[in-house]
């Protein structure tokens, strides 16, 4: 599903955030991406969803070499990837329902279908009763779950998450990780960047570690 071949990423200021990174993930696999702060975890995820482009090497997602995707095709590519952001990136002037509906609206889903799908996603994260509230009226954990619902509402085959439990208490963190496991069990490929080592070891999934932009282990 994901393949990195000798990937190097140098930012515009000359800083090399990733150096010679190679690894691959199978379809329906779940893995954690760890490393110290500034190791290059977010950078790696950004390369997968084409928020950034590689400087050297190749990233292949679902058999498609990302360097061959032209700029104007990126939106269509992104519709196949669900992303959960550390700071939620919700729209605070819209209801929970509208936030989750956004990807469906963008991909031009039939309006009747939208309601059904949004409610299914909200049900999955346990927020069905709060669809009419705005994100401000929710707790941090609930906001994060809205973000997850938005990421999965399109039923993407690949789910990326950048520090999804960043500022949540351990119990909530475990709850959210369990949620990701459940998506993985129905065949979704899941890659989660996190430095919550205790939680990761607890989950018994594959761990990909990077240190100063280089691969440490890929078991």
């Amino acid at each position: 599903m994901i393949e990195f071949q000798n990937v190097m990423k140098r930012y515009q200021d000359g800083y090399e955030a990733l150096q010679d990174v190679s690894f691959s993930m199978d379809r329906s696999e779940m893995a954690f991406l760890t490393g110290h702060s500034g190791a290059g975890k977010s950078t790696l995820l950004k390369l997968i969803m084409l928020m950034e482009r590689t400087t050297k090497g190749h990233v292949t997602v679902g058999g498609q070499n990302l360097s061959q995707i032209p700029q104007r095709q990126i939106p269509y590519f992104r519709r196949h990837i669900g992303v959960v952001f550390q700071n939620h990136r919700l729209l605070y002037d819209r209801s929970v329902f509208d936030n989750v509906a956004l990807p469906l609206e963008i991909s031009g889903t039939n309006p009747r279908e939208v309601g059904r799908r949004v409610r299914a996603a909200l049900d999955k994260v346990g927020l069905l009763s709060k669809e009419k509230l705005t994100p401000i009226q929710l707790s941090g954990g609930e906001q994060q779950r809205v973000g997850i619902a938005r990421a999965v509402v399109n039923k993407p085959p690949l789910l990326l998450a950048d520090e999804p439990t960043g500022n949540l208490d351990p119990e909530l963190s475990e709850e959210i990780m369990t949620l990701f496991s459940e998506f993985n069990q129905v065949g979704v490929t899941v890659l989660i960047a996190s430095h919550d080592l205790a939680l990761i070891s607890h989950m018994k999934h594959r761990v990909i570690e990077i240190n100063d932009g280089r691969m440490v282990s890929h078991a």
Binding site: M1, Q64, Y76, H80, I81, G108, K155
Partner: peptide, 30 residues
């Protein structure tokens, strides 16, 4: 522009063709 193009690396089904036009107009309205 609203209909997914060929880029479908992950093989997901996000195209809802039958009502594409319908939803296109409904989006404009919205």
């Amino acid at each position: 522009s609203n209909q997914p193009k060929k880029v479908n690396p992950t093989g997901a089904n996000t195209a809802h063709k039958p009502n594409a036009l319908n939803s296109y107009f409904s989006h404009h309205q919205k």
